[in-house]
Design a protein around this nucleic acid. Structure first.
Length: 102
DNA sequence: CATTGGGCTTAAT
DNA sequence: AATTAAGCCCAAT
């Protein structure tokens, strides 16, 4: 029960920690890889509760449309955008376009 | 106990 | 390609 949920969180964080710079993954896909296909929103909850100084690359998680899931202009949006741009992404509004050539 | 709202997704227009 | 509607699951209220 709660054990199950903890496992889920653990797996989510595990998968997340294995993403390389420049990769992105969707909430749903992340949930899927953590063996709970329909828990995309829970992934969001988990990420939002991460400490602000976490090492984990939470910013590499975007929604299925390849967009930043925060409303444009919000503080969270900018944090994520900046982090992604630092990894070479070109971002237009909420949308992630192609990566810059390294 | 029911309602509501989230860093969502998918299918159908 | 963009918008809408219906699903989904947990936690907080």
């Amino acid at each position: 029960m709660n054990q199950e949920i903890d496992d889920f969180k653990t797996k989510v964080l595990f998968v997340l920690s294995h993403l390389d710079s420049g990769e992105v993954i969707s909430y749903g896909e992340l949930a899927r890889q953590a063996e709970h296909p329909n828990h995309a929103r829970q992934v969001g909850q988990i990420l939002k509760r991460l400490p602000r100084d976490t090492q984990l690359p939470w910013h590499r998680v975007v929604n299925s449309k390849r967009q930043i899931s925060f409303s444009e202009g919000s503080a969270a949006y900018y944090r994520q955008k900046i982090a992604l741009e630092a990894e070479g992404w070109i971002i237009c509004g909420q949308r992630l376009l192609a990566k810059e050539a390294p």
